[in-house]
């Protein structure tokens, strides 16, 4: 004998879900487009900052190579973004509005401003034309670089995806550090003669990233599993191995070109792995109803004991 819609029927088994189906619709961004876009943005930012430093400290080679690197990176980043959108025209819709509540809107404007600057800086340094503009462009690009490197962290954190949203404190440091390390590694192999700052940047960038990731995983608690397990876990571990190895190689690579090249490549690869890891962690987190429901339940019972 059954009764329609009356008293509670089943004992609670936390956290409950609807046939294990996700509560959220996960990120639909394409792979590798978006991880690449994240990585290249950071690489460009790091490179532009190095370029500015190089100009100020009179390191011509480093300056020119990093400017070219920045231009290449940001071009690649933009291409990746447009490819994800499907049609170039669609990127223009981004500039219909200026919307502080949308990191993607902000990012688009940053891209729109940084891209030309990076381009002008590179062009003038290669051709020697309009040096004053070159200086201004270099300064502009450098000024925008910190945002360029970190807005993508806000972009991810500003979603309902638990593993991203709850990591909003550390993600910017992860991305900033990762970008700096990659840029350092690249510069070290592009301008071996003037690579001191680059090598030091690589080392410090890695330190910042590693520290941020360590802190993030501690603070995420149960949500950290999405960074530690599965595909995401493999990417993150790869990054964690590659980065220190890259730093070591770059430092020891001073007089050994092979090591130097390997080091730079490793550092960039590490940075790319981190972005893939973070991205995949988000997808896994969104797909797991427990990650959405669990923390919200805890929050509720914290407020009102049931």
């Amino acid at each position: 004998m059954g009764r329609g819609g009356e008293q509670r029927m089943v004992p609670r088994a936390e956290p409950r879900s609807y046939y294990g189906e996700p509560v959220l619709n996960g990120p639909v961004w394409k792979v590798p487009d978006v991880p690449a876009y994240l990585f290249l943005g950071g690489l460009a930012a790091g490179s532009s900052l190095l370029a500015a430093g190089a100009d100020l400290t009179g390191r011509q080679v480093l300056s020119q190579r990093t400017k070219l690197a920045a231009l290449a990176a940001i071009s690649g980043s933009t291409i990746a973004l447009v490819h994800d959108l499907g049609r170039p025209a669609r990127f223009l819709n981004m500039l219909r509005t200026f919307k502080p509540t949308s990191p993607m809107s902000m990012g688009s404007w940053v891209l729109a401003a940084y891209g030309p600057a990076a381009g002008a800086a590179a062009a003038s340094s290669v051709t020697g034309i309009a040096p004053r503009c070159g200086v201004a462009a270099t300064a502009g690009a450098a000024a925008l670089s910190p945002v360029l490197a970190t807005y993508t962290a806000v972009l991810l954190a500003n979603t309902a995806v638990p593993a991203w949203h709850e990591a909003h404190r550390e993600l910017p440091y992860v991305f900033a550090g990762s970008g700096a390390a990659a840029a350092g590694g690249l510069a070290a192999l592009l301008a071996p003669g003037e690579a001191g700052p680059a090598r030091r940047l690589a080392a410090m960038g890695w330190a910042v990233e590693a520290a941020a990731v360590w802190r993030m995983e501690r603070r995420l608690g149960s949500l950290a599993t999405s960074y530690e397990q599965g595909r995401a876990g493999r990417w993150m571990r790869a990054g964690e191995v590659l980065a220190p190895a890259g730093v070591l190689a770059t430092v020891l690579g001073r007089r050994r070109p092979a090591l130097r090249v390997g080091g730079g490549a490793a550092l960039m690869a590490a940075s790319l792995c981190t972005r893939f890891g973070v991205f995949e962690a988000g997808r896994a987190s969104a797909a797991d109803p427990a990650q959405t429901v669990g923390p919200q339940r805890e929050r509720l019972s914290a407020h009102s004991p049931t």
Partner: peptide, 24 residues
């Protein structure tokens, strides 16, 4: 939490710039 997020991002960006400066 967007405000807080932007502040963290700004701080991280500044840190990045600082690190670069130190690197030189």
């Amino acid at each position: 939490r967007l405000g807080a997020m932007w502040r963290r991002a700004a701080a991280a960006g500044a840190a990045m710039a600082a690190v670069v400066a130190v690197a030189f």
